[in-house]
Design a protein around this nucleic acid. Structure first.
Lengths: 147, 147
DNA sequence: TTTTCTGCAAATGCTTTGCATGGGA
DNA sequence: TCCCATGCAAAGCATTTGCAGAAAA
């Protein structure tokens, strides 16, 4: 990821702008979110951070993520069963394609997204500002294994 | 809803097929889900059911819904903050438009959905079998109130 | 009569909060 | 030094579970 450095710097700037302090724990959390490999959960972030800072608490991870959500610098994928997942490298709504077998996630680039959003607004009268779009299925690898 | 009767009968049949008993509480819950006005939460279902059966417990509502989920006769919309919502009249994946203010939910009928799913498959190679598609925004009513 | 379902209460799992202490700036 | 952030523990919520009594079939 060559975008990683830029994302990290951007997040740090946003925190500083808001008069927030850059603590070692926060820096460690930001590093993980800036790359967002595998759309980590709070638990996963916590497990990585505590390698370097063993006393870090889950509460601190939650508080830092709450802060970043307020700044619009992290995307939260909500799941009512199981934990939420986070994407700090692309902190804006975008579609995900999730493999139901190996849990891999890819981000498709859908031409028809704009047209669909327009169709929603026109048909319902809602002023759409956000979306959650997940497709579930078998990735190419897992399709082969099922044969 | 002229489909309401048919949906209710279908759900009852599925329960009977599975050797499940039709209790007054279950019947009341099925009635609400078969019409699914407003994509009710467990709390909302509970509030209605207890009008006729005041001793009904939340646990019974949860257990009945779990049963219907296993039969594929209700669609669960998961939300990690706030309660889940349920659709028993259209128990298959379909797009929803959610008002971020009053929490109302409507079902748009999107022409472009098929094309988008095809685009996802073509671009990623995944075999898509399911989706979660929510649009968030202000409903017409809540737009007026904000003026 | 035989199971199964109900309803209460306790338990669970994720997340948030309160507060005293510690550590950035 | 002055606050803000941390970390612990407790609280909050939605949901699930265990079990004794109630009620379908």
């Amino acid at each position: 990821m060559q975008d990683y450095e830029a994302r990290l710097e951007h997040m740090l700037s946003r925190l500083r702008e808001g008069g927030q302090r850059i603590t070692p724990q926060r820096l460690a959390i930001l590093r993980i979110l800036a790359s967002s490999e595998g759309h980590p959960s709070v638990e996963e972030i916590y497990n990585v951070v505590t390698r370097d800072f063993p006393t870090t608490s889950l509460a601190t991870v939650y508080k830092t993520i709450t802060l970043l959500k307020e700044l619009g610098e992290v995307l939260e994928l909500e799941f009512s069963q199981g934990s939420n997942r986070y994407d700090g490298s692309k902190p804006f709504p975008h579609p995900h394609v999730v493999c139901t077998s190996c849990k891999s996630i890819v981000d498709p680039d859908l031409e028809s997204l704009g047209a669909m959003t327009a169709e929603v607004c026109e048909q319902t009268g809602y002023k759409v500002v956000n979306h959650r779009m997940d497709f579930y299925g078998l990735c190419p690898e897992c399709q082969k294994e099922k044969e």
